[in-house]
């Protein structure tokens, strides 16, 4: 069974269908980019993956678990904004990634010291060690998103959901965040779903690019039908399929002899 499986998913708000008949499977470690025009339901799909909303029909399973009814630790998330806690310092935000699941939301004594040490190691890794004592509001947009991603990852989720994480960043910062995300992904082998407006970004980062669009369109009633996944591109190797020359077929193999 696949790691993430979406079966016959429908979602509507009242009588207005948003998503229709979505079937999708993803393997562990895959990076899926979700692209599409505004209002075509890709963010709604991410909220369904997050279990922030329940689908009208169909189910989403992660790692074979029963469909979730509310957001849980299996899902890590980074939004475009407001993903970190403004009243905690940068270090406390990282510690919160582990401590919020504890009974009082805190570590005490030796546990707290150990958690701080682990948080400092994470901060060094994501390049925020020098601002450990600062509050998020004093950081740049790119640093805040780094912090948000680091915070989500210390909770060790099964899938990481990104909702236009770099949408509010300037182009230069965006490029360095791409490198940052690719490095982290190579280290952790994380399964990622990323909603983006930016096609180039989607193809650059993703293994697959899923395009959300409405297959049916009623000109007199544009909202009569919902969107579904209309294309599922293989985005490895820069989005050009079969470019890896399979030289091995010309090589004499001892086993065939």
């Amino acid at each position: 069974m696949s790691f993430v499986s979406v079966e016959n998913l429908f979602h509507s708000y009242g009588r207005r269908p948003i998503l229709e008949r979505i079937n999708l499977t993803a393997e562990k470690g895959e990076f899926l980019s979700l692209v599409g025009a505004s209002g075509c339901g890709k963010s709604t799909f991410l909220r369904l993956l997050l279990a922030q909303e329940q689908p009208s029909r169909g189910s989403i399973r992660i790692d074979g678990a029963p469909p979730a009814t509310e957001p849980d630790r299996a899902r890590g998330v980074v939004f475009q904004r407001y993903s970190v806690f403004p009243h905690m310092t940068v270090r406390e935000n990282i510690v919160a990634g582990e401590s919020l699941s504890r009974p009082l939301g805190r570590f005490f004594g030796a546990g707290a010291r150990a958690a701080r040490a682990r948080a400092d190691a994470v901060l060094e890794r994501i390049g925020l060690g020098h601002v450990a004592q600062a509050y998020p509001a004093t950081l740049s947009g790119g640093m805040q998103q780094r912090l948000a991603i680091g915070q989500a990852l210390v909770a060790k989720p099964l899938v990481l959901l990104l909702d236009e994480p770099f949408g509010a960043l300037d182009p230069g910062t965006r490029l360095s965040m791409h490198d940052f995300l690719l490095e982290l992904r190579a280290e952790t082998g994380m399964t990622v779903f990323m909603v983006t407006h930016d096609l180039e970004e989607g193809f650059k980062l993703g293994d697959r690019v899923l395009v959300f669009d409405k297959p049916r369109w009623d000109p007199t009633d544009p909202e009569a039908f919902g969107a579904t996944i209309t294309y599922d591109f293989d985005a490895r190797n820069g989005g050009i399929p079969f470019q890896t020359i399979k030289e091995d077929i010309h090589v004499h193999r001892p086993s065939e002899a």
Partner: peptide, 21 residues
């Protein structure tokens, strides 16, 4: 922001922890 409340849930926070922390 709802984002913060959802984020806290994905970090495993209970209702009480969300209220307190």
């Amino acid at each position: 922001p709802t984002e913060q409340i959802v984020k806290a849930q994905t970090l495993g926070a209970s209702s009480a922890v969300i209220a307190l922390r």
